[in-house]
Nucleic acid binder design. Structure first.
Lengths: 356, 356
DNA sequence: GTGAAAGCGCTAACAT
DNA sequence: ATGTTAGCGCTTTCAC
């Protein structure tokens, strides 16, 4: 009943009037303490399982708290402890075409990251940020809302990411490892993936493999490197005209097919840099009367769920979303602890289905 | 340099030793104040655009803050102001098969909610919660981390949701409006959607329409009601055996098709309660030698991106993800303000493509 | 227009 | 094993 204020007895009026919301009047540690007949310190200690408070009291207080549906105010706790258990996850979007966020692969990763964070007792703050303003992500750290940032997708924003990292905030990016990069990346082994895909096509007799992707993006560039290596390994030639610039939006794949056909460029296979592109390409091929895999073999990348449901079932390069999420989170928490986290190349796997 | 502590001059030692992290030593309001030659109050006021501080000073302080990359500590601000601008978004998962989170529709909604929240100046705390433990969502509010909760997907957890709502936390659920519900829902007009889909099939001459969905879920039950109404409107009979229990996982649709065929139940169309089910069903039909739409017309629900890319392009019921996200957020914020938010039925639209 | 000081809800020395 | 107290970084009254 007694205020902690020991000055004048009548000075009970809080300086700041609380908002006009008495009904949901939050129960707080004070209340628990009063009801339990102990001090707030004891409650605090009990609730954080301090060995200083007897097991008996701990249980009693825990039950009291539960019955009152009391939960420690995390904001106040963080402030006092000077810590924080929240990670910001950022999905960059292209200000012109917000499209790519719909790519099922990124999306799946979100769930996987959420699970990995939960497992470590962290909360996830999700936000989409204009890819041209990635610097805004720093705010989450500057303002103490998050201890670090995971960016899903490197796109062609290497420089911006480097600048972000220069601000010394814990940062991990899903993407490709690049020379002189100041931030930590986690990504699939793109060179290997590209090589696996291309190798499979070559081994099954395809010789004119169209590459669908935008090599301005580091990950795509590395997949293309795998494409080249697979050719080189077998001493087979490549053709410049088969390297088609296709950004990660479905429509682009459709047009790429059309343009190849219109230009009468001969090809007997497509290696698309995402399943989305591959599936759309298959549709476009069908529209022009080409059959998959008889006329054209098609191979994708990611192995999203839909890859096995579509027709023909998609042969593709599998990246494990679960492993990816865990790796991203582990790397971030390591950096935050002050440990060094090296760029991580996750293994890929060829999944052979019907399309190639 | 001087501590606010006016007691003993040598009492500079902070009571609590800061963690061993001097390098990223956070700049705070103190620092800005000192550099600007004003008090923290003035900085605080300037940064929140109080009319009490002159425009000139405001600009000066804003620039100083920007140059030091200072951002007000949101935790402390919230604590002091007794407010909070974070909303928890929960995706329930089935503890046995975490599957459904991969449904592209829910996923898309996430992005749309994120955008709507950002627009309103709110942050989004994302978490997956075991569908059997939805009560855990209350913690986000009890602990002051969030001001309210948006649950994406009602599933068959009406009762649990009601209990959650009984705790008087701002709660909005994506799902169907149910009698005696204590929480606010936002959902598409499922009866209308079901009726549109079925009506289209009936109008195009189909008479034995298999319904793929689990009517234990309120949304599905309402779509089935639309299915019934469409039949009734034309005075056409339905057949019990065509109502197939199919949960929202791809594999289930495949099996439903197989079982229908195995039992030699005649049908000339499928109305599937999600595009995912529809697309998988199409694959399964093909596997047993039935062609779409010639032998069997198939119609889906959601109109996810993939619906237009797959083959044959899917005829489906469109639900606008953007509108949905905005509606969910608007409802939640209204409730939080103390306003009443009525259950919201978003319009649906039939999108006719190739599959029906 | 500005500053001093109290206190948001909590934790952790420090003192018993 | 428990209570007392200072203070985390900020906002806002109150006094000028």
């Amino acid at each position: 009943m007694v205020n902690k204020n020991t000055e004048s007895p009548e000075q009970k009026q809080p300086l700041v009037k609380p908002g006009i919301k008495p009904p949901p009047s939050k129960v707080q540690m004070d209340d628990i303490a009063r009801l339990a007949g102990v001090s707030v310190s004891t409650v605090s200690r009990a609730l954080s399982h301090s060995p200083l408070v007897s097991a008996k009291t701990q249980v009693r207080i825990a039950e009291l708290a539960a019955s009152l549906k009391y939960s420690v105010n995390v904001g106040a706790q963080n402030l006092r402890r000077g810590q924080n258990r929240t990670v910001a996850v950022v999905i960059p979007y292209d200000s012109s075409s917000r499209q790519h966020v719909s790519d099922p692969f990124f999306i799946g990763m979100l769930g996987s990251i959420a699970d990995a964070l939960t497992l470590q007792g962290y909360d996830m703050l999700l936000s989409r940020i204009d890819a041209e303003r990635l610097d805004l992500a720093a705010q989450y750290c500057d303002s103490g809302r998050a201890v670090g940032v995971i960016v899903i997708g490197q796109w062609r924003h290497h420089d911006q990411l480097n600048e972000l990292a220069a601000r010394h905030l814990p940062l991990v990016v899903w993407g490709a490892e690049l020379p002189k990069q100041m931030y930590c990346t986690v990504g699939s082994d793109n060179v290997e993936g590209g090589s696996l895909a291309t190798g499979h096509l070559l081994k099954t007799g395809r010789r004119r493999i169209a590459f669908f992707g935008d090599t301005q993006m580091p990950e795509v560039a590395q997949r293309f490197e795998g494409y080249e290596r697979a050719h080189a390994a077998l001493g087979l030639p490549m053709s410049e005209e088969l390297n088609v610039v296709v950004p990660f939006v479905a429509e682009a794949a459709r047009e790429a097919v059309k343009s190849l056909v219109a230009k009468k460029i001969a090809f007997d296979a497509i290696f698309a840099c995402s399943d989305l592109l591959a599936i759309t390409a298959i549709g476009a091929l069908r529209d022009v009367g080409l059959s998959v895999p008889n006329d054209i073999a098609v191979i994708g990348y990611d192995d999203v769920d839909m890859a096995s449901y579509c027709h023909p079932a998609l042969t593709t390069i599998h990246q494990s979303i679960e492993v990816a999420g865990r790796a991203l989170v582990d790397a971030l928490l390591a950096i935050q602890r002050g440990d060094e986290a090296l760029p991580n190349h996750l293994p890929t796997r060829l999944v052979i289905r019907a399309s190639a």
